[in-house]
Simulated scan of single mutants.
Amino acid sequence: MKTKNIDTQKITAKVNNALDTAKKSLNKANYFALNTTEEVVTETITIASQWQKVTEKALKGGVQLLENQQNLIFDSLESYKKHIINGKKKFSKVFAS
């Protein structure tokens, strides 16, 4: 039987070429993933910052609205108090006479 000589240099070159190609592909994939993640995080921070400003304005406006409503309620109560006191005086005059 005749044995065939295997050229180990050709096989080694092919394996090395395949490994180099795999390394390049993995480096590209890693670079893409890293850049995409960085873009997502940066965009998320930007959007969160914008929403923080909107929330701050809403809270300030809400506090101002609550203050106005509270003042309105107290003014109304003061007005009712005056009407009740005046009504009591008039009522007393009608029945006291």
Results as ranks from 00 to 15, higher is better:
2 K>E: 15
2 K>A: 14
2 K>Y: 02
4 K>H: 12
4 K>Y: 15
5 N>Y: 12
5 N>P: 04
7 D>A: 01
7 D>E: 10
7 D>V: 01
8 T>Y: 13
9 Q>N: 12
9 Q>Y: 12
10 K>A: 13
10 K>V: 14
11 I>Y: 08
11 I>N: 06
12 T>L: 09
14 K>G: 08
14 K>D: 07
16 N>E: 12
19 L>P: 05
19 L>M: 09
20 D>V: 02
21 T>S: 07
21 T>N: 04
24 K>V: 13
26 L>C: 02
26 L>W: 03
29 A>R: 06
30 N>M: 06
31 Y>E: 15
31 Y>L: 15
32 F>R: 04
33 A>L: 09
33 A>W: 07
34 L>E: 15
36 T>I: 06
37 T>A: 08
38 E>Q: 11
38 E>T: 14
40 V>C: 12
43 E>F: 01
44 T>P: 05
44 T>A: 11
45 I>G: 05
46 T>Q: 11
47 I>K: 13
47 I>N: 13
48 A>T: 08
48 A>H: 05
49 S>P: 05
52 Q>T: 09
53 K>R: 12
53 K>G: 00
53 K>T: 06
54 V>E: 14
56 E>H: 12
58 A>W: 00
59 L>P: 03
59 L>R: 02
59 L>C: 07
60 K>P: 04
61 G>L: 00
61 G>M: 03
62 G>S: 04
64 Q>C: 05
64 Q>F: 02
64 Q>S: 08
65 L>H: 06
66 L>F: 03
66 L>N: 09
67 E>P: 03
67 E>Q: 06
68 N>T: 00
69 Q>Y: 08
69 Q>I: 14
70 Q>W: 04
75 D>E: 15
75 D>P: 08
75 D>R: 12
76 S>A: 11
77 L>A: 02
77 L>W: 00
78 E>A: 10
79 S>G: 05
79 S>D: 14
80 Y>T: 12
83 H>L: 14
83 H>G: 07
85 I>T: 12
86 N>C: 02
86 N>S: 08
87 G>F: 00
87 G>I: 00
88 K>F: 04
88 K>C: 03
88 K>I: 11
92 S>G: 03
92 S>L: 12
93 K>N: 08
93 K>M: 08
